[in-house]
Amino acid sequence: MSPQQPVDGRDSVLTLRGISKTFGAVAALTDIDLDVAAGQVVAVVGDNGAGKSTLVKILSGVHPPDSGTITFGSRVVHIPTPAAAHHLGIATVFQDLALCENLNVVENLFLGQELRPLRLNTVAMETRSWDLLRQLSAKIPTVRVPVASLSGGQRQTVAIARSLLGDPKIIILDEPTAALGVAQTAEVLNLVERLRENGLGVIMVSHNMADVKAVADTVVVLRLGRNNGVFDVRDVSSEDIVAAITGASDNVVTQRAARRAVPGDATVEEGPRQ
């Protein structure tokens, strides 16, 4: 497969070439290529076991790759630790948001990077928190409540805002809408668009085709640890993406769709409905 071209000819901020990773006898990733430009939302989709999480972990410094090159800006980099990723400007928001429920929003945002360690500058931290949250048009009424009292979407907002503190160039969102309701999902998708407007490169790992179609510019499909297609979201249908994910145009998803389309045939093979 030929290396993809960045959308609209923009220079990519992050470029992966030939990334491979094996765990024992299992090849989790083989020859992965990926390009992310500033102000571009790249959705990484794939079935369970396709290697999405491994890719996220390589980029966030949890696992080093076995081979391949990562180019950030214009130089080749190594990302041995999470701190190195953070230092480069790659921020990751993991699926379990890892917030301290007993601390309030400001305390969570600045956890581990408080201003003035020996006499905390609470005023500056609160001001900066409001700046960040306004920048994301976040709907959080007050920053002085414990995170425990926030909704799922609001927590996701706090987690994303926290990743923005270090002025990252690339932000990786791992299943940002997985646990959210309809309205909260829309809120988070707005947030992703806001990140793009602010010129960040966004890598969004998702299972949800609707979300992917709604915000992504480019869809990268992984299948069994390999690139299985790079699509511009404007000229691809959900069916094509699903076909690439499952590896065949005649797959379980299309079969279901076909059955639902002809109600008379639906009774034969279908299990009990919920």
């Binding site: 701190a83 993991f94 301290c100 007993n102």
Partner: peptide, 24 residues
């Protein structure tokens, strides 16, 4: 209540994993 160490103490008591990921 006024130092980085204090915040770290409360964070570890609230959610160790979150504290670790925050670089504490």
């Amino acid at each position: 209540s006024r130092t980085k160490w204090g915040r770290a103490v409360y964070a570890v008591g609230g959610n160790v994993e979150a504290a670790r990921r925050a670089g504490i």
